[in-house]
């Protein structure tokens, strides 16, 4: 097993705030890896740092054997793509689905765009009927499917998922999670998925890292978490909280 993504002592500093304090991470090829934590834990910042959207102050990020520098080149974006949390904010309001999907192809000069777009829409279960709609003509779940299609159209090997279902209704969430699992299996993708919901992470991922205040709390396998074989109190707290409300009196 080789590492698709490895991160060493990663530091991210916004102004003077240390959002990530020396985090290590290794994601194997074809693996689905989860990052769990509450707000401010730095889990989303980690994804942003990988894609170059957050200021890296120290440490190293290696993707498919290549260590990344300050800037990301075009080739990087053909390996790594991302799906954002808010399906209402991640699609351009003035562009049709067709235009949204054409853009990555145009940027990378990929031919046979028509076929690729049709295939991408089929793959996310939308079909051609959605091709010329604008974002406001789509439901939340449909928008997220378009966002997934856009991420997949460049055929990346690593997909970063930033709370991809937290803005969706439970029933739609199930559909999108199923879709993500399906494309991962078919394309042998590596996932790095961020969520605050332990149930989603254990459902989707084989290994996970619990984060708090910009640091790793502990690294677990999904089965360790399911069997409550955790060593840190913080993780135990999260587990308890995910089981719903328990009347104390």
């Amino acid at each position: 097993m080789t590492a698709a993504l490895s991160i060493e002592r990663l530091e991210v500093v916004f102004d003077r705030f240390r959002a990530l304090k020396g985090v290590d991470l290794e994601v194997r090829e074809g693996e689905s890896y989860g990052l769990v934590g509450e707000s401010g834990s730095g889990k989303s910042t980690l994804l942003k740092a990988i894609t170059g959207l957050a200021p890296v102050a120290g440490g190293a990020i290696t993707v498919n054997g290549k260590t990344l520098g300050k800037t990301r080149d075009k080739a990087f974006y053909r390996d790594v793509q991302m799906v954002f949390q808010d399906p209402y904010g991640s699609l351009h309001p003035r562009q049709t689905v067709d235009r949204l999907l054409q853009e990555p192809l145009a940027i990378h000069g990929i031919a046979h765009g028509e076929k690729r777009i049709e295939r991408a829409l089929d793959e996310v279960g939308l079909g051609n009927g959605f091709r010329f709609r604008y974002a406001h003509q789509l439901s939340g779940g449909q928008r997220q499917r378009v966002a997934i299609a856009r991420a997949l159209i460049l055929e990346p090997s690593i997909l970063l998922l930033d709370e991809p279902t937290s803005a969706l209704d439970a029933s739609v969430q199930a559909e999108v999670l199923n879709l993500l699992e399906e494309v991962r299996r078919r394309r042998k993708l590596t996932f790095l998925m961020v969520s605050h919901d332990l149930a989603i992470i254990t459902h989707m991922c084989e290994r996970l890292m619990v984060m708090q205040n910009g640091e790793a709390v502990e690294t677990l396998t999904a089965s360790q978490l399911i069997g409550h074989r955790v060593s840190e109190d913080y993780t135990r707290n999260l587990l308890r909280a995910s089981e719903g409300f328990v009347r104390t009196a």
């Binding site: 959207l53 974006y77 793509q81 954002f84 949390q85 808010d86 853009e103 940027i107």
Partner: peptide
């Protein structure tokens, strides 16, 4: 700073292209 502009950045679009087309 909206996600849809970030999404285009993540496709590797040049700043020129982002300003002009998006």
């Amino acid at each position: 700073n909206s996600d849809y502009i970030k999404a285009v950045q993540l496709m590797g679009a040049s700043p020129f292209r982002i300003v002009l087309r998006h």
